[in-house]
Design a protein around this nucleic acid. Structure first.
Length: 495
DNA sequence: TTTAGGG
DNA sequence: CCCTAAA
């Protein structure tokens, strides 16, 4: 790119096209005593109790590259001779349940007869897997929602007590992500109780001969299936709390850890790992962990529901629907005229695991240490301790924002804006290309750019998530190079 | 508030 | 994405 005295116009060239798309707004209607029935299946996914009309596209809420998206022209852009693609993303937070106003009435599925004010928690064994059982990338997402506290704090609480030789493994816990060739795997409500729980580490690992310890990585534990019946008039905050408490109730109960080897449950507790077939050489450690409630039915602290055991008929452990869910960022359960979107179960993305620390890029180390992190066992105490308390009355206190992977379209808009404005004016970039995307802050854009640059530099094989067209990545590098150079020049000038 | 970077 | 020191 040649020097452009007018930084506002270099790197340009595309025709203006301002995408403007009125996303189907999700409306939350007020209706009478309807009951929300969210079912979190054992496989971790959360789904509406009833068949939901799956009319959401994978790109949910994000403008689709369809013709309809090109109906408006941005006159300002024309005037400036700029090619600006502004994303008019109507996908604002209010479209999500979690962000709904407290007094919004929502109705997800028909369970007219369900008694209000009840929460039914039905358990099902849930298990965790480390490798072969794909579909757990976004798990963390959900778990985070359920446990609105910061992960760090969580870990802090669960592992601060003991600092053993395992703690150093924390960082690589997730390297062995289940992502394969950029494919996104399922999502699910999962408790990720990874990390070390030292107390049990010793007793489990040390018996093995030195140097032959089997290190395991438990990415996440899925939460048992639970049903929640809550009045439509309940607030979002209470819904969150309800789910939260339901999960806590389950996890708080005495849990039992089950081991699965290649899908089969290992019952003999006296066998050694090697005898059982678990060795460090087994790279595909087809090991699975289960969290089994001590009792078949969990006793929810606030479970006054006599129908507790009658909900069985409603559970469907359809693992298949997995694929369906992970493609949607949210569910559109429409009935009559009410529509509600329930969280993103999967957001189709993967970095869901990133929370464990961006170790993704360290896959090398991983393969080196081969297996990983050691999570000897779950520290039940820690789990049980995980408190659900918020200092603030604000339900969103400390709520981590849900992940919303950038769509290719958004990336394009970002790239275009940066090409024009540079890498140091995120505020302007935001205003220029994401002014209507309330959920994208300039910091987000800056971060996204950072990752884009990184993405563009790594091999395609290492990339994850929705693949970004190489063409865009090239532009990213070009723009990045250009503006970096530009920055240097300016620095020299001022010296 | 916005930048700029590390976490 | 989050958190923050600086500006």
């Amino acid at each position: 790119m040649g020097d452009s005295s007018s930084p506002e116009n270099h790197l340009e060239g595309q025709g203006q096209n301002v995408l403007e798309r009125e996303d189907e707004r999700v409306k939350m209607r007020t209706t009478n005593e309807k009951v929300i029935h969210i079912k979190s299946r054992s496989d971790g996914l959360i789904e509406p109790g009833q068949k939901a009309s799956k009319d959401c596209s994978a790109e949910n809420h994000v403008e689709k590259p369809s013709l309809e998206g090109r109906s408006h022209m941005n006159l300002d852009s024309l005037a400036n001779g700029c090619a600006t693609r502004k994303l008019v993303n109507r996908d604002d937070d209010e479209n999500f349940v979690r962000c709904a106003q407290p007094n919004s009435k929502i109705k997800i599925s028909g369970s007219p007869g369900s008694p209000p004010d009840t929460i039914k928690v039905k358990d099902a064994s849930h298990f965790v897997n480390d490798e072969n059982n794909s579909g757990d990338n976004s798990v963390l997402e959900n778990s985070e929602r359920m446990y609105p506290f910061k992960k760090r704090k969580f870990f802090y609480q669960t592992s601060s007590s003991t600092s053993d030789s395992w703690s150093h493994c924390q960082g690589i816990v997730d390297s062995s992500s289940t992502r394969v060739n950029g494919t996104n795997h399922g999502a699910g409500a999962t408790m990720h109780v990874i990390e070390e729980s030292s107390s049990m580490a010793d007793q489990q690992v040390h018996p093995a001969s030195k140097g032959c310890n089997v290190k395991l990585s438990i990415k996440s534990f899925k939460v048992p299936e639970l049903f929640i019946d809550i009045p439509e008039t309940a607030t979002i905050g209470s819904l969150k709390r309800t789910v939260m408490e339901a999960v806590t109730a389950i996890l708080g109960d005495e849990l039992h850890v089950g081991i699965l080897l290649q899908g089969k449950k290992v019952r003999d507790d006296s066998k050694t790992l090697i005898q059982t077939g678990i060795s460090q050489d087994d790279k595909r450690h087809r090991l699975g962990f289960m969290l089994e409630p001590r009792h078949n039915r969990m006793s929810s602290s606030y479970n006054d529901d006599p129908c507790f055991l009658t909900t069985g008929s409603r559970q469907k452990l359809s693992r298949q629907s997995n694929s369906l869910m992970l493609q949607q960022g949210s569910y559109n359960v429409s009935r009559e005229r009410s529509t509600v979107k329930i969280e993103n179960c999967a957001e189709g993305d993967l970095n869901g695991v990133s929370s464990l620390g961006d170790t993704s890029a360290n896959n090398n180390n991983m393969s080196k240490c081969r297996a990983l992190v050691t999570v000897p066992a779950i520290n039940m105490d820690a789990l049980a301790v995980v408190p659900y308390r918020r200092k603030s009355g604000n339900p969103d206190f400390g709520q981590r924002r849900i992940r919303r992977p950038f769509s290719v379209l958004e990336v394009e808009a970002l790239v275009q804006a940066v090409e024009k404005l540079g890498t140091g004016r995120w505020r302007d970039v935001k205003q220029r290309a994401f002014d209507n995307a309330k959920h994208r802050t300039y910091v987000d854009l800056k971060d996204k750019w950072k990752t884009l640059v990184h993405t563009a530099r790594i091999s395609p094989q290492q990339r994850r998530g929705e693949p970004v067209p190489q063409e865009l990545l090239d532009r990213v590098l070009a723009a990045h190079a250009y503006w970096s150079q530009q920055q240097c020049k300016h620095q020299l000038k001022s010296m």
